[in-house]
């Protein structure tokens, strides 16, 4: 994808995002920008502390049988499936930033050369529905150690080819079931479902599983997220 193409796509995505979320933004800003908004923010911050305390790095998300897999998978994004970004896996690179020693960008084949892990897990959407899928790829903990990331940092942040972005806490990033997924059902990811690389993190809600990653950073500066900045609970752990 040429830079202009990507920028077009990002603007289109951002415009779409702005249009679809405008009523919500207007409502929160116009009606409850004062006390109720502050109250909700304070309570969500408290909920996030509780969720951090509840998080046990040794508790695994449930796994399922192959016959329980939802196929075809369910598409979900802040835009229609026809608008999903198409990234050329041959020229694709995952850029690295923040507190990482070796920031050399990663190609799909380089990621494929790292130890692979497969999981049949459940993805729960913040809306309530759930799907079961088989993803495989590189453990994020392996990857972060491999590139010399500062594991004492608080956050791992992600940027996507469609302008989407999100971030997770370091303990959840190091969970053994948190992977940089390359395959679904043992075949490379397809464009609407996060090709060529997506985050698959069963200890978080679906919107914390960003697709078509183009940038990964480790940081102590709160990175927020596309939905998180609009009022979704940041931690959103399962």
């Amino acid at each position: 994808m040429t830079p202009t193409n990507r920028r077009n796509l990002m603007f289109r995505a951002m415009a779409l995002g702005a249009v679809t979320t405008l009523p919500a933004c207007k409502m929160t800003e116009a009606d409850n920008s004062s006390l109720t908004d502050q109250f909700k923010h304070a309570m969500l911050a408290w909920d996030d502390k509780v969720q951090e305390a509840l998080f046990d790095p040794h508790t695994l998300a449930p796994t399922f049988r192959p016959d329980q897999i939802t196929n075809p998978p369910r598409f979900n994004a802040f835009y229609d499936i026809s608008q999903a970004p198409v990234v050329d896996p041959a020229t694709y690179t995952l850029a690295l930033g923040g507190q990482i020693q070796n920031k050399t960008p990663w190609s799909v084949s380089a990621l494929n050369a790292l130890p692979q892990h497969s999981q049949i897990t459940r993805l729960i959407c913040v809306e309530g529905w759930r799907v079961i899928g088989q993803w495989s790829g590189v453990r994020l903990s392996d990857f972060l150690r491999h590139v010399g990331a500062d594991l004492t940092c608080k956050y791992v942040s992600f940027k996507c080819a469609d302008g989407y972005y999100s971030s997770i806490d370091m303990p959840s990033a190091l969970h053994p079931q948190t992977i940089l997924a390359l395959n679904f059902l043992n075949a490379p990811l397809t464009p609407p479902f996060g090709a060529p690389v997506r985050l698959r993190i069963p200890v978080k809600l679906g919107f914390k599983n960003p697709k078509s990653l183009v940038h990964l950073a480790v940081t102590n500066v709160y990175p927020g997220g596309y939905w998180e900045d609009q009022g979704y609970d940041w931690y959103s752990g399962s």
């Binding site: 919500a24 969500l44 913040v126 009022g231 609970d233």
Partner: peptide
Amino acid sequence: GGWLGGAIAWHLAFMW
């Protein structure tokens, strides 16, 4: 709540 995010924020606040 007005929208899903607002509703979840209220729900997670008043559950306490």
